[in-house]
Design a protein around this nucleic acid. Structure first.
Lengths: 330, 330
DNA sequence: GTCAATAACTTAACCGGTTAAGTCATTGAG
DNA sequence: CTCAATGACTTAACCGGTTAAGTTATTGAC
């Protein structure tokens, strides 16, 4: 159905080269006569010719595509990141191919390999916990990639993350400033460095304020069944320490489910306690507008990661860029 | 960096053909000696050979990629659809390339053209209002595609949509069954057929119940600035008709912003009125668990659209498949 | 001992573009 | 009038695979 360059060449009895030059806008440069140029362009227009990017990519070695690997596109945070990445990439003439790892390391490896086979020019990856090996391979091959949201301290890779420690620290300090003393910390059982950093922020804020750290105020929710587990553990927490007066949520989905719990059980969040969360969603903004939020610069993360990646693509020897973006707490 | 089939052939002093046969698993069929097969596979393993999909696609004419064009990946509904599409496509051996049209018809056309240039095997499109022409071109070219969520009555295309009329009708009937009489209908100014169908559902429910349709209960929010506009218009509505006792929201984002408005202005939603919404989000499920929901079979939409698309890809002469999936109201 | 069948490969063309290196007729400077 | 420069193309190779159509050497049936 679709017409090829060769078809035009045959139809007009000229060489493929001439057609290629004219249709790629190098007709004048290559001194093709105006008459010939017009003839070719006219034929192309009439028969609705569009170059085949596969063929182009095959010999340029560039697909103008970047791969984005995230835990799940269904998660608002990553969906927003994806959007920013797409917008920025598009501005720079790139397309994005998304893959959701569903937080499964094998799936993630598979997706990375497949994206490489499809010859994407580079990768932006929000890695799961156990992908170190795959990333090491990428490094060895000097395949351009940028980590976002998470990073691995042992690996010299490009990354764009946010300042997790200071985010949660400032947030906790604000809660303390409101006179709260028994501040619970709700987190997950993932062993990502960034999640540990958040806990550090919480502890540091307490230390700075001279409040002793109480491990029983820390709730570690099982990630894989967080909706159910958080209910159990919040029940336990509120029974054991009924006078909790603050909550710090390490992630937005923990905040959402906690708010659901509070709302369902008629626990007045506004007066009894101060809430704080890393990252805001529509739900938390509606249901707990007073909640203190660590705002992640989502647009910046998207833009910067694309920017760094494209630089790395242009210059394979580029020294690693490691960006820790500031967060706004309010 | 990456090794090619040709490199292996040269290194082992054999023809590209032999290597190709062995590495694509047709060594036995093509009677290549075991010794040779082992030698080639060993070399490939050692040098970490992975076939270049561009080259494969170029002569097979198949990229095993489908394009997904949606208004915005940042919208939870489409993000969830995207996820289901990706999962189903992956099961069938396909990858998905997403593009957000940002509800801009020119952008959408551009994305469709670009996906075609990248030789995706087919498209799944949640079209914006004014894309009819681009779709007509696809039809003319018999390029495989499936519309989702929206469709165009004038075009004989594949589509997978849900039963919008009956969804809103049942929902409205349930609200009426709770004794509500002054039921507001909140919608947007888009002229999509599916949105009109929802209004029909509302009207039909009223008619069936013998309640006269009151146009002043219908609020048409300006889509492009809905966050602000909905506040203005809800204010007007509640002033003019203070005894409104029901709300039907045509879309989830309208419900979310309305709930924000109600919550901010301390309007008791539970006793004063019954709420109903087309599609649920995390926010609405937390903040208004009692709200009656038209549940869209998101997973089914994703799966069916992929299924139909792959069929259409295999058989270009396939008669159009038009699916109206049932919704569950509860 | 001959000849067809078969095992084990190779050659070359193709997919749809790009590009370095020709070719040939025309122009114009000396 | 000659020869180099230039205009206007063409040839052929290449990107990295696949595949139809050979090509040998060996086997074995008669």
């Amino acid at each position: 159905m679709a017409i090829s360059l060769k078809d035009i060449a045959i139809a007009l009895q000229v060489s493929k080269t001439t057609v290629s030059w004219v249709l790629s806008g190098r007709g004048d440069e290559k001194k093709i006569s105006m008459a010939m140029q017009e003839k070719i362009k006219e034929y192309a227009r009439l028969h609705d010719y569009h170059p085949n990017f596969l063929a182009k990519s095959l010999n340029s070695g560039e697909t103008n595509t970047v791969g984005l690997v995230i835990p799940s596109i269904a998660d608002t945070f990553y969906a927003h990141i994806a959007r920013e990445v797409e917008l920025e990439a598009e501005k720079r003439g790139y397309t994005v191919t998304f893959c959701s790892s569903e937080a499964n390391p094998e799936r993630e490896s598979k997706m990375i390999r497949m994206l490489k086979a499809k010859q994407v020019d580079g990768l932006i990856i929000a890695a799961t916990e156990h992908t170190k090996e795959e990333l090491e391979i990428l490094l060895k091959e000097s395949y351009p990639f940028v980590l976002i949201d998470r990073f691995f301290p042992g690996l010299q890779t490009n990354y764009v993350i946010v300042d997790n420690e200071s985010g949660i620290r400032c947030l906790t300090e604000k809660i303390i400033a409101q006179g709260r003393k028994k501040i619970a910390y709700i987190t997950t059982d993932t062993h990502l460095v960034v999640i540990r950093k958040r806990l550090d922020g919480y502890k540091n804020a307490l230390t700075n304020a001279g409040i002793p750290f109480d491990p029983s105020l820390v709730v570690e929710v099982i990630r894989s069944e967080y909706e159910k587990d958080i209910i159990r553990k919040l029940n336990v927490l509120l029974n054991r320490i009924p006078d909790v007066d603050g909550f710090v949520f390490a992630t937005h989905y923990l905040a959402e489910e906690s708010l659901r719990y509070f709302y369902t059980n008629n626990i007045n969040m506004t007066e009894r306690m101060t809430l704080g969360c890393f990252h805001q969603t529509t739900s938390t903004s509606i249901l707990a507008p007073q909640m203190i939020i660590v705002e992640q610069p989502v647009a910046m993360i998207g833009r910067q990661s694309v920017d760094i990646l494209l630089q790395a693509i242009k210059n394979k020897q580029m020294p690693v860029v490691q960006q820790v973006l500031p967060v706004i707490v309010n």
